[in-house]
């Protein structure tokens, strides 16, 4: 089990077409058939190959705009790739502040829907239902629609579903920012006890402490390219060095601006 591949990506790439005027209707498309649309192509992920084994905890490092989020969405199967091929073995879940919840549904319904999407059977959800509600500290609001929740309540529910149900492969994008200090502490405890041992986790974080503490391997991305994939410490060093270079180049400009 441990040594089988969870995700295998071969030569994947993804670019976004950003145009000033959006051809969003048939009418618009017809009327502007010969007019160039002024498209800008932004390559977000350039020709990456990587393999992630089951049970691994992988860190993703890189500065803003380096393609981390795009890579995560590609690996989770949310975005299709432009080229290359991805094999995903198991259900995936992408998690940042909110996970897939409908605001039209009640907490109860959302727990069942999300749990089911994550690959659990109804009976299994029945058994962890109370646990999810209790963990989210939402005992009195089970049959309230999410749209009447405060943002903190919704975030706690999303987090609690993810923590207690969990997909085979979890993508965590800066997740340790949910709830108050007490809730965070609880979240980290569950993260450590159940996720690190057993599930495949891909962790995106700007906190080097978090990456260093949990990740078995880490990847360093820059400008849409996979610069390094392997030893966690090495990746962190590369990332820190990249940050220093960036601040050195921007520092004189900043000083000039301040002088003016």
């Amino acid at each position: 089990m441990k040594n089988s591949i969870a995700i295998k990506a071969q030569n994947i790439s993804k670019s976004f077409h950003i145009s000033q005027d959006s051809h969003n209707t048939v009418k618009h498309r017809l009327f502007n058939i010969f007019k160039p649309s002024g498209k800008k192509i932004v390559p977000a992920v350039k020709n990456m190959s990587l393999e992630i084994m089951q049970g691994e905890c992988i860190g993703l490092l890189g500065r803003n705009g380096c393609g981390k989020s795009t890579l995560v969405k590609l690996l989770a199967g949310v975005y299709p790739t432009d080229s290359g091929h991805i094999t995903i073995n198991g259900s995936t879940m992408l998690m940042n502040l909110g996970v897939g919840m409908s605001h039209e549904l009640t907490a109860r319904e959302n727990i069942y829907v999300s749990g089911s999407v994550l690959g659990l059977k109804i009976k299994e959800i029945d058994t962890i239902f109370d646990q999810i509600v209790e963990f989210a500290e939402l005992e009195g609001f089970v049959d309230t629609k999410i749209k009447f929740y405060s943002s903190g309540m919704a975030a706690r529910l999303g987090f609690s579903i993810a923590v207690n149900a969990g997909a085979d492969i979890m993508f965590l994008d800066e997740i340790f920012a949910v709830g108050d200090a007490k809730f965070q502490e609880k979240a980290i405890r569950v993260f450590e006890s159940s996720w690190i041992n057993g599930k495949t986790v891909i962790l995106v974080s700007h906190s080097m402490d978090v990456i260093q503490q949990y990740c078995t391997r880490a990847a360093f991305l820059k400008d849409g390219e996979l610069k390094f994939f392997g030893d966690t410490q090495e990746a962190i060093n590369l990332y820190l060095k990249d940050n220093e270079i960036a601040s050195e180049t921007t520092a004189p400009a900043l000083q000039e601006a301040q002088a003016v």
């Binding site: 989770a76 199967g77 949310v78 259900s91 879940m93 996970v99 897939g100 919840m101 997909a167």
Partner: peptide
């Protein structure tokens, strides 16, 4: 919300 966060 169903497919945005998973490979459903």
């Amino acid at each position: 919300y169903l497919y945005e966060y998973s490979n459903m």
